[in-house]
Amino acid sequence: MLTLLTATGARPAAWTLCERWMARQDYAGPVRWIIVDDGPEPQPVTFRREGWQLVLVRPSPHWAPGQNTQARNLLKGLAAVDPADSLVIIEDDDWYAPDWLTTVAAELQHAELVGEHRARYYNVQKRRGRQLVNTGHASLCSTAMRGSALQDFADACRSRPKFIDLELWRRPRDRRLFGGHRVVGIKGLPGRGGIGMGHDAGFKGEPDPTGALLRDWIGCDEEAYR
């Protein structure tokens, strides 16, 4: 079994796409999806899939504009994770290839902390994409873990850094980074804003006015972000 953890709230458009990308995953095993929603109003959850169990968590107080509740929400979700679980972080506003869960399940056979390097970010409002050169860590959206890495993740969240992924990956651990570009960090969707550099007003990347770059990265799914 894989356990997924998603922190969300006040992002209904992003959440709808997240359900879509998970519904088509080709992973054949059982999945437990922990969804932590701290928005003022709960987002509609319409996801149903045989072999998948949903765990909905509503922490309080609810998020208010200007707050960063990511660390708190992840910790709330981690409270429902068993130490024996294999945990995959799924971020609500990012694109995932259909074989993402199958890929990380295989990678977790070789290391306790795994992730995809050389991240790709794309801001749909600015129509710009950027290929990063990170080879020593993975973005949180493309990170999975098991064993003692789960405790490292909890400790990283408790330290309340702005960027939990950097804090997690700098800790000594049995780790494995891999390529493949099966995840794209999508920025600028409607709703609650994000905290990463891809959300910044000054985000720089390759201009993509026609969507050709995004189409090269994610194929016909580009239509979902027009």
Rank of each mutant, 00 (worst) to 15 (best):
P161G: 09
E223D: 11
E167Y: 10
I195D: 06
D85G: 02
Q131P: 11
L214F: 00
T6S: 07
G136I: 14
G198F: 00
A84N: 07
T6G: 10
W217H: 00
S148W: 07
C220A: 15
L166G: 10
L101Y: 03
L166R: 11
S60F: 13
R173S: 05
L54W: 02
A224F: 06
R20F: 06
R176S: 14
L78G: 04
A23E: 09
R49Q: 06
A201Y: 10
D208P: 04
A10C: 12
A28E: 00
C141E: 08
R58P: 07
P65L: 08
H137V: 05
D155R: 12
C157A: 12
W100Y: 11
R226W: 14
R48E: 13
R120K: 05
C141D: 15
A138T: 04
V81T: 05
W33I: 15
W100E: 02
V88H: 01
R120V: 15
Y121T: 00
R158T: 02
G51A: 04
P207Q: 07
R48T: 14
S60M: 15
C220S: 14
W52G: 09
R120G: 08
Q43N: 06
D26W: 06
C220E: 13
S139R: 12
G196T: 15
T69P: 03
R192N: 03
H110M: 10
T143F: 10
Q67C: 01
V133M: 10
G77F: 06
M22Y: 08
L56N: 00
R175Q: 03
A105L: 03
P59R: 15
D216S: 14
